[in-house]
Each structure stands twice: as structure tokens, then as C-alpha cells.
Design a protein around this nucleic acid. Structure first.
Lengths: 227, 227
DNA sequence: CTTGAGAATCGGCAATAGACGAATAGGTCT
DNA sequence: AGACCTATTCGTCTATTGCCGATTCTCAAG
């Protein structure tokens, strides 16, 4: 897990036309200050600033390696939250986020919160949502088994199922159709395109299908704020 | 596709304690001589030799980038064979083999040919098969779109759909169920296990579901021999 | 043996990286 | 205002890289 993130970050920095900017990008993604990074590396803070400013056009790989390892070490020292988030081969659950709402939430409220675009206007949104599950749909498809279905539905099927990594949006609807339990609402996060069949399947099942262009983090934040 | 291999190779070289050896490893994987590489980069051959020998402990990222891009460029110039091999997201066709039979073939005959085990004995095999399609089901699931469906069915839906890479056998049946066109027969090649739901879906659709343990090559050979 | 191809070794040098520290800037809090 | 924290800019210096070319080595074929 750590090795894959490590390779990804190093590869990106190495291949970047502006490695300084890439280094900064990742440092910020890891929520690390220049001060903290410089201290960890045992160098002067101005060194970090110079690198990120692009003062050096072709940093050596030893330098890059030290920086990447610092990112990971510091993250691990503070719980490894970011590492987990960016894990590429999370053979873990395909569930990105899941939560039971403390109170019932109206479907309309949820759709507004995620700046959702209703793809099935003919279906009413007068539903009460008890929780949500954010699923990496690509991962779910390759690893899903009937046990996972129960996990996805958590304590209630009266939930919003949110699918990330959606290309045409057909497979999630296929999966939903095949399962006896039906969610209250389905959300596609930044789909490349929503296939007509997906919409038709949603209509056949009487499940509102919503699309949103929010980034995952914003989406989850919004959902969590609902209760 | 190319970007993923690119990042992988660059990341590896960058993170290696002995970058020289890693460079050599990949150069050899790409079947490129030092001569060829040096020529492509427009440097003296001794430069490549020095790098691979580890003369430079911390090559700059611009140098690494140039080398990696040279590997990929040279490979592409000679057909991209290696690139394809190492492609992490082969966006290629999911159809392994497809053919229209020169004559109608009885379903029973086909099942015998592939040493098939009938999972849906309640459904009659008195069907005529016009052709077959062998599909890598894992690849099909992630890349399938409605146009691919037409390709899968070829000139006739009166065909045998053969799925390889099947785990529980549910997804192919899900896909078949979702599509208006129905095949004459479905074959799972060496599935890990056939889920009860898959069998039930097949019965619901009235489509015979067959399993076979033949290797892909033998399977295709047998199918081709049918006409 | 000779020849040629691919590779290796190493001295040399200009350019750049790695790092320091001083001076400066911006923002927040008391 | 002053103090403190984070970040930036830039001159400077030493170490190292990027690259050349001459020389040598290895191996296979004729």
C-alpha cells in the first residue's frame, strides 16, 4: 500500500515539467507545512521554498526520494490518514464512506446539498433518507459478492447510494436491479456520461437517479453535514 | 495507457537505491541496446554505460524523464509490443474470439464439444447455434458500452456467449439480463464458482447455462471445429 | 587470427544541484 | 505596536551531474 503511493508520488514529481509545483501539490495534499518538512529532512526552510519555487530545474532523484519519504513518514506519524485515502490498491472495502444519519433527511435536501442534477424527473423525491454509502463503483464491480451487498446497505436500505468512478452508469444500475434490496436514491458522482439505459433502469425501478459534479471530498463533507 | 507505464517506470527508477540497475532492467525489458538508446537521446554511448554502472548516484529528474520517454518512444516506433504487454489498463477489445458457423450447430453438439456441464437442466437444449463469441468477462465489464454489445452479438444473437475470467458468474448474467438481445446459450469457462443467482437469472431468461473446465485455447479450438 | 558490434572505464570540464543564511514579506494574535 | 509563525528571495559556495571522447574489454562470426 505505502509502496504504491510512494511510487505514484515519486513518478509524478519525476515526470513533471514543473516538479516544484508538483512537490507543493503533494505537500499540501498531505497537509504538511514547509517548516515541518524542512525539519523532518534536516534542512533549512528556504531549501523547501526554493524547490517549490522551481529554482532547481532538475532535482536529483535522491532529493526527490527523501521528500516523498518525508511526506509518507510524517503522514504515518500522524495516523496515516492521507496514505489511506490515496491508497491505490486498497484491497480493502469498496466503501469509501458510509454513515447513518442522526435524523431522517429529505431526498430533496440531500440532492440540494450535493448540487445534484436530477436525471429522472418523472420520479418523485418525496423520500426519507436514513443514511448514505459512497462506493467506488469500479472496485465494487470486480470484488462485489453478496456479503458486500449487506455491508453496502448498512443498517437500512433507505439510503442514498453514491457511486464514484462511474463511466456510463450502467453497471451500478445493473447491480441494483439484480439485488432484492433497493436504495432510496442513487447518485453518480462525476460520471463521464450517463447512459440512457441507466436512466431507463432507474425509472423501471422507481429509483431517483441523480448526478453531481462535486469532488468526492466535498460530496462526503456535504453528506456528513446532513446529520 | 502510456502514461501509466511511464509513471510506473519513472517512479521505480526514481525510488531505486541503485537507479543505474533499474534503468538497465527496463532498457532490457524493452529490448533496447545502449547504442540505440544513446542514439535516440543524442548522447554518447558511454553516457548510458556510465548511468547504468551507477556512476551518478543521483541523476536529475530531467535525465530520468528523457530516458523513460526514450524507452517508450522506441517501443512505440517498433510496434509498441512491450508497452502493450505492460499496459496496466489495457483498453483493448474484450473479445477473445468470435466466429459465425458455416452451418447451424445443435446446442447439444456444442455442449459436448466443449465438455460442458449443464447448470440449467430444466431448460431444453433444442436450439440451433449460428456462431460464438468468447469474452474476457472482467475486461468486458469495465469497458462495455452499447456499441460493444453489437460487436459481441456479431451477425446473429443466435449464438453461444462464452465468458472467461468468471468469478461467480453473476455479472455476465446481469449484463445479459439488461440487454434486449438474448443469446442462445451461455458458457462459463472455468468459473471459480457459479453463484446461485446466476443460475436463477439464466432460468428466468430461459437461457441454458453451461460450465466448462477446458482451457481457453482448447475451448476455442473445439468451437472452431464445429464449422 | 581479424573484424565488428555492444559495452565498459575513466579523465576532464562546464553547468547545475544542494544547502546555508541573511534579509524581507505577510498574516495573526496580544 | 511588537512578537511570532510561515514563507519567500537571493547571493554564495562546495559537491556533483551531464556529457564528451579516448581507450579498453568482451564476445561472436568469418
Amino acid at each position: 500500500m505505502r509502496d504504491q503511493v510512494r511510487e505514484k508520488v515519486a513518478g509524478e514529481i519525476c515526470l513533471s515539467d514543473e516538479p516544484g509545483k508538483t512537490i507543493r501539490k503533494w505537500r499540501e495534499q498531505f497537509h504538511i507545512s514547509q517548516q515541518e518538512l524542512s525539519k523532518h529532512l534536516g534542512v533549512s526552510p528556504s531549501v523547501i521554498s526554493d524547490y517549490e519555487a522551481g529554482r532547481r530545474k532538475s532535482p536529483g532523484i535522491v532529493t526527490v526520494r527523501k521528500i516523498v519519504d518525508a511526506f509518507l513518514d510524517i503522514d504515518e506519524k500522524t495516523g496515516g490518514q492521507i496514505l489511506k485515502q490515496y491508497s491505490l490498491a486498497a484491497k480493502t472495502d469498496s466503501i469509501i464512506s458510509i454513515k447513518e444519519f442522526a435524523k431522517e433527511v429529505l431526498a430533496t435536501e440531500l440532492v440540494d446539498m450535493i448540487e445534484g442534477d436530477n436525471l429522472t424527473p418523472a420520479i418523485g423525491l418525496d423520500k426519507h433518507i436514513h443514511g448514505y454509502t459512497v462506493i467506488d463503483s469500479i472496485r465494487a464491480i470486480t470484488s462485489l459478492n453478496s456479503f458486500d451487498y449487506l455491508k453496502i446497505y448498512g443498517w437500512s436500505s433507505q439510503r442514498a447510494l453514491v457511486f464514484t468512478g462511474v463511466k456510463f452508469g450502467r453497471s451500478p444500475m445493473i447491480a441494483i436491479r439484480a439485488h432484492p434490496l433497493k436504495p432510496a436514491i442513487v447518485v453518480y458522482q462525476k460520471p463521464e456520461q450517463v447512459d440512457e439505459l441507466a436512466i431507463r433502469l432507474a425509472e423501471l425501478e422507481g429509483i431517483p437517479l441523480i448526478r453531481t459534479e462535486l469532488p468526492v471530498s466535498d460530496l462526503i463533507e456535504g453528506l456528513q453535514s446532513l446529520g
